[in-house]
Amino acid sequence: MSTRGGIAAATGTEALTTELPVGRSTGWWGMVMFVATEATLFACLLGSYFYLRFQHGGSWPPGDISKPKLLVPLVMTGVLLPSSLPVVWAEHGIRKGQRWRLRAGLAATLVMGATFLILQASEYADKLREFTITTNAYGSLFFVITGFHGLHVLVGLTMISWLLAASLRGGSFGAHRHDRVRNAAIYWHFVDVVWAAILFTIYLSPRL
């Protein structure tokens, strides 16, 4: 198909009246809407961070708090972002009816997510020596944003464990029945992507 023909086809009546999106289940839409409202919540949270930062003026972080160090959070990122891959792999597996892939993929994600939380605990232990949630608004923002995300990771891990438990039982999932797997996967990808935004906001932006 030539480019010109492509443009003509794409701007033709038929292409312009093509139904997009199509064929999703109610569960998919429900999860997408839930993620949309959660994403808005995180957007407000990160927006509040920037609002307080720029309203504060002056040096940021305020007070005696030093700029956040990057090593641990980058390792955390390295653990969490790739943890979506086993979920994708597991989901593709169960669509083909390969239950072992579902189990293995979920287990791998579980391990990576748990590692992330352990690293976050060590990060907290480090930060708490410098400031706490009550030190000032920066401290409040830092712990509430990362804590709220950590809570989401915990919820995501609960969902993954729950899926894993159901898949171990047998009679739960197969090529024709994997809505729950996909919905939990959407949630997990969301938790992942939000971390990237948090990494940028909390750890990278004070250095810009």
Binding site: L52, Q55, G63, I133, T134, N136, A137, S140, L141, V144
Partner: peptide, 24 residues
């Protein structure tokens, strides 16, 4: 949530004396 945290757990989201802001 921020109001509750401010009131109950001593955070400073809306406290201009500690880098917070009331217009938020």
């Amino acid at each position: 949530a921020m109001l509750f945290l401010d009131r109950r757990f001593g955070t400073h989201f809306f406290d201009p004396g500690a880098a917070g802001n009331v217009l938020l």
